[in-house]
Design a protein around this nucleic acid. Structure first.
Length: 411
RNA sequence: GGGGAGAUUCCCGAGUGGUCAAAGGGGGCAGACUGUAAAUCUGUUGGCGAUGCCUUCGUAGGUUCAAAUCCUUCUCUCCCCA
């Protein structure tokens, strides 16, 4: 089967896990541009890189002429999706959800443009929030078989640990979203992570029953890392797009440090470099570290802009280059008054004030284990006092181990 | 509604009156090795200038010289029965 441009791109880049009817979808997409949607539930103030696969897929399809609807789940977030979770998520207040919708839409607007003619942001709170319970049950609820729902993997898993009725309803709401988007925008494709498979096919069934229409579903593989750790989780926490929750430098470093085995996969998923370029970058005789730099820079540029990406790469070069030269701008930092250094600051106190150490005890451990470095000088004495003499060009560079850097700006 | 089991430090999970800041594993951090990778080995992993003190074993009380461990209240979870 010859795939249309949009599907071919997704296929080549590793986005496709399963499709309800690839041939049918392909024919539909060849015949005319289609409208498709992907949902993001606003469960936090910022999305993180784990959310980004669908966004990239959306961007690729948009590039090949199809019309995206990016659905923000302001309504569904009031319920909470049990799919793939072992326990119930904490319930969010309506206020928090609304704020999350605002901030996430802002974040996503920077990555994909929705002009309101060929692409839209929608919030399902618009049609879910004021549903009438009885009407909903009579119109929508009748189409759902509890017996069948219980056979879904997402629920089966929860049979062990417990599942509440509110969560059990989630699938009906997401299915209703699909129906609503079909009615409003003739949306005929829903894409999402593979954990959404059950919700997606349920929606397709609902559209078929209510509208006698055939619509499609397509899922992406759940992206894992070669070392088996969860995608987008660093030791500090999730890699958020919001620079106040995850500095641009840390964002860059996360990708700069990915496992060798993941580089090519991530270049395909998280950048728009052509497959030829990626092939060259990842050739067996090419420098793998160069490839990681490309990945990190490209992705950082996409999210934070070229200027910030350049700063991050410069900061990394300064930190790891060895000569201490380069731009320190993007390195995480704090400001400390010069007068404090006149008096002298104890090494443990200094580290504890940075994000390098969470507590003084941690700083003590770091120092006594030989991981504390001030301006390239290893300090192992916990009584060491950092004085004004350590300030160079208004900075003191702290290192915790070999990879974690911090800049103290002395004012 | 009735009966049973359970809630432990970041996670899983031992611990059933003092020797428990709490085994073991995972994860994290650091050291060695290296390529800012992986794998491996070692150390470390609540807070505090500390051979001690403070906070932590679902919540609130109580018994005791002493409680994660015993009693009572409450909250929540799971299982069986209705």
């Amino acid at each position: 089967m010859e795939l249309c441009e949009g599907l071919q791109v997704l296929q080549d880049r590793g986005f496709i896990q399963q499709c309800t009817d690839l041939e049918g979808l392909n024919n539909a997409m060849k015949a005319a541009p289609i409208t498709f949607y992907v949902g993001v539930d606003p469960t936090g103030p910022s999305i993180h890189v784990g959310h980004m696969v669908p966004v990239f897929a959306l961007a690729h399809l948009k590039r090949s002429g199809h019309k995206p609807v990016l659905l923000l789940g302001g309504g569904t977030a009031r319920i909470g999706d049990p799919s793939g979770k072992t326990e119930m998520r904490k319930m969010l207040t309506y206020e928090d959800i609304n704020e999350n919708v605002q901030s996430i839409q802002k974040q996503l607007s920077a990555v994909v443009t929705m002009d309101g003619k060929n692409g839209w942001f929608v919030n399902n709170a618009d049609w879910l929030a004021n549903l009438n319970y009885i009407d909903f049950l009579r119109e929508i609820g009748v189409h759902f078989s509890v017996n069948r729902m219980l056979t879904f993997e997402a629920y089966k898993k929860r049979m062990e640990t417990g599942l509440t009725f509110i969560e059990f309803n989630y699938q009906l709401l997401q299915s209703y979203d699909y129906l609503e988007l079909y009615r409003r925008k003739k949306c005929t494709l829903q894409i999402g992570g593979d954990d959404q498979w059950g919700n997606i096919v349920a929606g397709i069934d609902l559209v078929r029953r209510e509208e006698k229409a055939e619509v499609f579903g397509l899922t992406f593989p759940l992206i894992t890392r070669a070392d088996g750790k969860k995608m987008g989780k660093s030791e500090q926490g999730a890699i958020f797009l919001d620079p106040t929750m995850c500095s641009v430098y840390d964002f860059y470093q996360y990708w700069r440090n990915v496992d060798d085995r993941d580089v090519e996969k991530f270049l395909k998923l998280f950048t728009f470099l052509s497959l030829d370029e990626i092939k060259t970058i990842c050739a067996p005789d090419a420098d793998i570290n160069k490839a990681k730099e490309v990945l990190a820079w490209e992705y950082t540029k996409l999210i934070h802009g070229k200027e910030k990406a350049d700063e991050a790469i410069a900061a990394a070069k300064a930190a790891f280059g060895g000569d201490g030269q380069g731009d320190l701008e993007a390195m995480p930092s704090i400001e400390i008054a010069e007068s404090e250094f006149e008096a002298g600051i104890n090494i443990m106190d200094l580290f504890a004030r940075t994000s390098l150490c969470a507590s003084k005890s941690e700083a003590r451990r770091l120092v006594s284990q030989g991981g504390a470095i001030v301006n390239d000088e290893k300090i192992t004495d916990i009584d060491f006092i950092v004085k004004a003499g350590a300030v160079k060009d208004g900075n003191i560079i702290l290192k915790a181990g070999k990879k974690r850097f911090f800049r103290v700006i002395v004012k």
